[in-house]
Design a protein around this nucleic acid. Structure first.
Length: 571
DNA sequence: GCCGTTTTCGGCCCGACTGTTTTCAGTCG
C-alpha cells in the first residue's frame, strides 16, 4: 500500500459520500487529504512511524486514523462498508455529462439502477423523464452521451492538444471583436495530457465572439451557449470551453481559468486571510487595475508564479518568501543526446540530423542509436557501430557543420542488468545511454536491481526513459524510482527527461525533490527524425513543471563544459 | 472532516448555465 493507493481510496470515499449526500465540506476534506497524500514527499510508512501524519495539511484526527488502519492492515472497514452501500456501477454514472452525485443517487434510489447498461435500458423505456429533477431533455442527453462516453472521457497528449487548439486560437485572434485571447487551463500549465481546451477572450462584444466560436467547422455539437460562457464538443470528442470577460478583468480570469483548482483555492484562501475577496473578475475591495497576472500575485504579496508551477506543490509557499526557481527556458538548451539515425530506426541520416542541429543553432548533438538486442528497432551490431563511429569522427573533422557530434549509443539493459556491449566497446564512445526495452514484467525488486546494476556500470552516462511508460497507452513498469534516483546521484549519472510527448519520462512530479538531492537532468528529444528534435520543447515544458533550473540541466552547458563532464566517465 | 495570531464553534472558493421549475437545484469548472 503506497501513497497512490491511499490517495485513490480517499478520493473514492469522497465520491461515495457525495452520492450519499453527505456534508459537502466533509467531502472536500477527503479530497484535500487525498491531494496532500498524493503530493507527499516523504515515505508514508516513515511518516506513520514517526507519528507525524497529522502534521500533513488536511489530515486531522479521523483521516489520520483511517490512513493508519489502511497502511497497517491493508484494509479499512469504514471504506468497505461505504462501498457496500453503493454499487460500483453507480459511480460510473458520474462520467456522464450532466449527471452528478445527486442525480446518480436518484437513479439508484428510485429505479434501482446499478450499472450503465441498466441506465441505458431505463432511458430507452422512457422511465427517466418522470423522475424528480429529470425531464425529456435530460433523458435524451443521457442516451445520446452513452454511446460516446469513451471518446468524451479520453484525454489527449499535450502535443496533440496544441495542434487542435492552434486553428481555433488563430481564428479567434483574427476576429476584430477580440482584444485578448489565449488557451488557459491544464493546457497552459503544460500538463502532459489535456482533457479539454479552455479558451479565454477579452472583448466588449461577447455575442459576436460566442456566435463565431459555436458555428465554426470544428464544432460537432454545442453543449451550452451563454453571454459569458459557451462549451462545444469538437469533432474528435474533445470538449472546448470559451469564457468571455471584459478586458479589465482579464488578468483575474487568466489566473482563475489557468488553475489548477487546488492552486486557486489556496489563492482565494490567502486573499480571504488578507481581507480580500478573489474571483475571476476582481480582488475586492482592493481597487487595483492589474495589467497582467503578476500584478494580482503582487497584491497578494506573492512573486509571479509561472503557470507550469501552479499545481499546489509548494509554489505558493515558495512565492511568499521569494524562493521560486528561475525556470529553465527553451533558449537555454544548447544540444541534446538521445537522437537516432538510419543506422538503427531513425528516418534521417546522420548528416541530415547534424544539419538540422546546426539550423537550430545547437552547439552539439549526441547520436545514440539502438544496440544489437533491440532488433525490433534495427539495433546496431558491432560492425555497424564501428562504422558509425568512424563516420562521426570524419564528419567532425570535416568542419562542415558548426555543431559538434558526440558519438553515443542507446544501449539495451539485459534482464540481468548487464549491458548489450562489452565495456571494451563502450569505452570507445563519448557517452552511453542505458535503457530497458524488454522484460517489462519483472517484479519491482528485480526491475529496480536490473536498472541499478546498469547505472553502476562505469561506462554508463545516463538513463533513458526510466519508467518506460507510454502516456495513455502503457503503464510504467514496476520500479522503485526513489532508489533509481539515489543510485544515479551516488554514481554521478545523469537522468534523462525524455521529451517525446508520449513519454515525458522521468515524470515532472519527481524532479523537484530529486534535483534538490543532486540529480542531474538531460532533456532529450528521443528523436527518430529531424522533426522530432522539436520534442526538446515538450521536454522543457515538463522540466519547468518539475521546478528545474538551468543549473540542473546538463544540455544547457556550453560545448567545452559538456565535454569535460562526459570525460568523467569510467571514474 | 479540518482548522484557528480575531475563532475550539462555525466557518469552509465561487460564479455561469441548463433544465426543470414556478424561484432554484444541480452540475461544472
Amino acid at each position: 500500500m503506497d501513497k497512490h493507493d491511499i490517495a485513490k481510496i480517499l478520493d473514492e470515499i469522497a465520491l461515495l459520500l457525495e452520492i450519499q449526500g453527505d456534508n459537502p465540506f466533509k467531502i472536500r476534506a477527503y479530497e484535500r487529504a487525498a491531494r496532500s497524500i498524493e503530493n507527499l514527499d516523504a515515505d508514508i510508512h516513515e511518516v506513520i512511524k514517526k507519528g507525524s501524519l497529522r502534521d500533513i495539511p488536511g489530515i486531522g484526527e479521523k483521516i489520520a486514523e483511517k490512513i493508519e488502519t489502511l497502511v497497517k492492515t491493508g484494509k479499512l472497514p469504514y471504506y468497505i462498508d461505504l462501498k457496500a452501500s453503493i454499487p460500483k456501477g453507480v459511480l460510473e454514472f458520474l462520467k456522464i455529462p450532466g449527471l452528478g452525485a445527486k442525480k446518480a443517487k436518484i437513479l439508484y434510489d428510485k429505479l434501482g439502477l446499478k450499472s450503465i447498461e441498466e441506465l441505458k435500458k431505463a432511458a430507452q423505456k422512457n422511465l427517466i423523464a418522470d423522475l424528480p429533477g429529470f425531464g425529456e431533455k435530460s433523458q435524451k442527453k443521457i442516451l445520446d452521451s452513452l454511446d460516446k462516453l469513451l471518446s468524451y472521457n479520453k484525454r489527449h497528449l499535450w502535443w496533440d492538444a496544441e495542434s487542435i487548439a492552434e486553428p481555433i486560437l488563430e481564428g479567434l485572434k483574427k476576429l476584430k471583436e477580440v482584444d485578448r485571447v489565449e488557451v488557459a487551463g491544464s493546457f497552459r500549465r503544460k500538463l502532459e495530457t489535456v482533457g479539454d481546451l479552455d479558451f479565454l477572450v477579452a472583448t466588449k462584444k461577447p455575442k459576436a465572439v460566442m456566435d463565431f466560436f459555436t458555428t465554426q467547422k470544428w464544432v460537432s455539437e454545442v453543449l451550452n451557449k451563454g453571454e459569458a460562457k459557451s462549451s462545444i464538443r469538437l469533432k474528435n470528442g474533445m470538449q472546448a470551453d470559451l469564457r468571455v470577460i471584459p478586458d479589465k478583468s482579464y488578468p483575474f480570469a487568466e489566473l482563475y481559468f489557468t488553475g489548477s483548482k487546488e492552486h486557486n483555492i489556496k489563492l482565494r484562501e490567502r486573499a480571504l486571510s488578507m481581507g480580500y475577496h478573489l474571483n475571476e473578475y476582481s480582488l475586492d475591495p482592493l481597487k487595483i487595475k492589474p495589467k497582467a497576472e503578476k500584478d494580482v500575485y503582487q497584491a497578494l504579496k506573492l512573486s509571479y508564479i509561472p503557470p507550469e508551477l501552479r499545481e499546489d506543490m509548494g509554489e505558493i509557499e515558495a512565492a511568499a518568501v521569494g524562493k521560486l526557481p528561475k525556470l529553465i527556458e527553451e533558449k537555454d538548451i544548447l544540444g541534446a543526446f538521445h537522437c537516432h539515425t538510419t543506422y538503427s530506426d531513425g528516418h534521417n541520416t546522420l548528416e541530415e540530423m547534424v544539419k538540422r542541429a546546426d539550423e537550430l543553432n545547437w552547439a552539439y548533438i549526441g547520436i545514440a542509436d539502438h544496440s544489437k538486442s533491440s532488433f525490433q528497432a534495427n539495433g546496431m551490431q558491432l560492425d555497424r557501430l564501428e562504422e558509425q563511429l568512424a563516420a562521426i569522427k570524419k564528419l567532425n573533422l570535416s568542419g562542415k557543420y558548426k555543431a559538434h557530434i558526440f558519438a553515443g549509443l542507446e544501449c539495451d539493459i539485459m534482464t540481468n542488468g548487464k549491458l548489450d556491449f562489452a565495456d571494451s566497446v563502450l569505452k570507445e564512445l563519448d557517452y552511453v545511454i542505458v535503457s530497458i526495452h524488454r522484460s517489462f514484467t519483472l517484479s519491482q525488486k528485480d526491475q529496480t536491481k536490473r536498472l541499478i546494476k546498469a547505472i553502476e556500470n562505469p561506462y554508463t552516462t545516463m538513463v533513458a526513459h526510466p519508467t518506460g511508460r507510454l502516456l495513455l497507452k502503457r503503464e510504467p513498469y514496476a520500479i522503485d524510482i526513489d532508489k533509481v534516483i539515489d543510485a544515479c546521484i551516488a554514481n554521478n549519472k545523469i537522468m534523462e527527461l525524455n521529451g517525446n510527448p508520449m513519454r515525458l519520462d522521468l515524470d515532472w512530479r519527481y524532479w523537484h525533490k530529486a534535483s534538490q538531492k543532486g540529480l542531474k537532468c538531460a532533456i532529450n528529444p528521443d528523436a527518430h527524425s529531424v522533426h522530432d528534435l522539436e520534442y526538446v520543447r515538450a521536454g522543457v515544458n515538463i522540466a519547468r513543471k518539475g521546478w528545474l533550473e538551468k543549473k540542473h540541466v546538463v544540455n544547457s552547458l556550453p560545448l567545452d563544459q559538456i565535454k569535460k563532464l562526459l570525460n568523467q566517465k569510467g571514474l
